[in-house]
Every structure is written in C-alpha cells, then in structure tokens.
Amino acid sequence: MTSAGGSVLVRYFAAASEAAGRDEETLTVEDATVGAVRAVLLERYGDAMSRVLASGSFLVDGVATRDDARPVRERIDVLPPFAGG
C-alpha cells in the first residue's frame, strides 16, 4: 500500500549522508514512491544529492531499486554507489 502524504523515514549512508548533512530524517511525501522521494531529495539538497543519486540506488523493503514507481511504505535507505559492487 502506498503512503499518500505520509511520513517516510529516510536513512542516508556514506556520501548520501554527507550530501544531506545527516544520517536520517522523516519526510512527508505525497503518494510516496521512490520517484517522489527522489524529487524531494533533489529539491532539498541540490547538486550534492544529485551526484549521489545519479549512480546510487535506494533500498526499499530490503531490495535495492532505482525504479521510480516502486511504492515506499515507511522507510527508504539512500545508498551511494559502492566500489566493487
């Protein structure tokens, strides 16, 4: 079930944490999908986050994804690209 205007816990790792200036935060995201969260993060953190998201991915329900249509229920992790992975 997609969260409509609900709270989403966003956790940041490595370069994503540096770009956001924090390890986690709770955001209110309309029709919470990976794409909606991505848009909020780009608007909020600009170029620094854009560089991370250009080659990074998200972890939703234990699955790494770059699918903007994937629903986000309660939590999403922002993962930078990892060397050798």
Rank of each mutant, 00 (worst) to 15 (best):
S3R: 04
E25S: 05
A64M: 13
G35F: 01
L9D: 14
A48H: 08
E24S: 15
G5S: 06
L9Y: 14
D67K: 04
L59W: 12
A16M: 12
A64Y: 15
S57Q: 11
M49I: 04
D31Y: 12
I76F: 15
A83N: 09
R73K: 10
R66V: 07
R66N: 07
L41G: 04
D68G: 10
E25G: 07
L41K: 02
T33A: 08
R75K: 12
V34G: 03
P71K: 08
A32F: 02
G6V: 00
T33W: 02
V78K: 04
F82E: 04
R70V: 01
S17Q: 14
L42E: 12
G21R: 08
G84K: 00
G5Q: 09
D61R: 15
P80K: 13
G6Y: 00
A16N: 04
D47Q: 14
A48Q: 12
T65G: 02
R38W: 14
G85M: 13
R22E: 14
A64Q: 15
V10A: 10
E74L: 10
R11F: 11
V8M: 09
A32C: 09
D68T: 11
T26R: 15
A15N: 10
V40C: 06
R44P: 13
S17L: 13
P71Q: 12
R75G: 01
A20N: 05
D77K: 11
A15C: 09
T65W: 02
D61V: 04
T65N: 03
G35I: 01
R11K: 15
Y12Q: 02
T26M: 12
G35M: 01
S17D: 07
V8Y: 05
M49V: 04
G21M: 11
F13L: 01
F13K: 00
R51L: 12
M49H: 06
V37E: 01
E30G: 08
P80N: 15
V72C: 06
Y45T: 06
T28S: 13
A15V: 08
T26D: 07
D68C: 06
G6E: 00
V52A: 07
